[in-house]
Computed example of a mutant assay.
Amino acid sequence: MKAPGHERWRHDTVDVLGIRVSRVDATVLRSFVAEAVASRTTLTITFANPDYVLKAQKDDELRGLMNGFDLNLADGWGVVLAARVFGRPVPGRMANDDLTDDLFGQPAAEGWRVFLFGNAPGVAEAAAANVRAWYPGLTIAGTLHGHWADEHGRIPAATAERLVDEINAASPDILHVGLGTPLQQRFVAEYRDRLTAPVIITCGAYFEHLAERRDYYPTWVLRLRIGFLYRLAREPRRLWRRYTIELGSYLVRVLAHRVRAR
């Protein structure tokens, strides 16, 4: 596994409970992506939200996987708040949904090829159809669903090699990997040296949002910074524990860490 921090991608970070979170804004992100595509130098990007940070506290593998990415962007106001509490604020929330214009508008303008890999069968195709309509000129090099894991939650090596070959055959400049955490981070870590796409971005369930509508979060939700409540209202059974018990535990750990640091 390549170590993070290639000279081209040196930037300031903040430690959020063991996760190295990047202190960059969308302008820096776009410049890094452009340089990676132009130089064909690998740039890996993932996202840190409170749920992942909390799990990484107890999971050494997940913590190592996330810290092995070149950029680890703040996904969620809980991470933004933690960075402020620790005295090293990040520019703002930078989840996939916040960066749609950057992730697809920039490739459309530059003529780059984008590949969507992940989520349930049919979702990536629906997302691809929408982003093509929203960003005229965008080239979708290909799509693949992400339901390949075995009963142990891992993609068998032979299957992964075949998927890598299929992705490489499409010659994408940017690869979005939506397999869920930690499977997506593990896939990128294990195959980044075999994947020819210079920019590789994890995205969780992002394709589901793109398949539905361009602005997944209404403007008033983003303005009030209550995206987590909006998602909880939409998927209460799946998310209630994450946004109640686990979020409370995360905030307690952040405050305790701050007190110890003082």
Rank of each mutant, 00 (worst) to 15 (best):
T159D: 02
F115S: 06
F187E: 09
L99C: 12
D150C: 02
A189G: 14
A141I: 01
A126N: 12
W148P: 12
I140Q: 00
I167R: 03
N96Y: 12
G111E: 09
V123K: 10
P198R: 00
A126P: 14
A128T: 04
L163R: 01
A82K: 05
F104G: 14
H152G: 13
L81T: 13
P121A: 03
G92I: 03
T159A: 05
L138Q: 01
R186K: 11
I155D: 10
R192C: 14
V80A: 04
A158T: 08
H147K: 15
N119E: 06
D193W: 05
W148G: 02
W134K: 10
P156G: 00
N96W: 15
T100M: 09
V85P: 08
M94D: 09
M94Y: 04
T143H: 06
L179K: 13
N96S: 15
R154G: 05
R192D: 11
G146D: 00
L138T: 09
I140G: 05
P136A: 05
D102Q: 14
P182V: 00
A124C: 06
T139M: 08
R192P: 14
T202H: 04
P156T: 03
G92A: 01
V199Q: 08
V164W: 07
A141G: 00
R88N: 15
E110K: 14
V188F: 07
I174M: 13
L163C: 00
S171L: 15
E190V: 12
R88H: 14
T202P: 04
R192N: 10
F104L: 04
D101K: 03
T139A: 11
E110L: 13
V85H: 09
E151W: 13
F115G: 09
R186H: 07
G142K: 02
A83V: 10
G153Y: 00
P182D: 02
P89C: 02
D97L: 12
I155T: 11
I200R: 03
T202A: 05
L179R: 06
E190I: 09
D97T: 13
E161Q: 10
D165Q: 11
V131H: 01
A189L: 06
A169Y: 02
L179F: 06
A158K: 13
P156I: 04
M94V: 13
E166L: 15
A127W: 05
P107F: 01
E161L: 15
I140P: 02
D101T: 00
D173G: 04
T143N: 03
L81Y: 12
E190P: 12
F115D: 10
L179Q: 06
F86Y: 08
H145Q: 14
R88S: 13
P121L: 04
P172V: 02
E161C: 11
A128C: 05
R186S: 12
L116T: 07
G137Y: 01
Y135D: 07
L195C: 08
W148A: 11
P156V: 05
I167H: 02
F104N: 13
A127D: 06
A157W: 10
Q106A: 15
T100F: 10
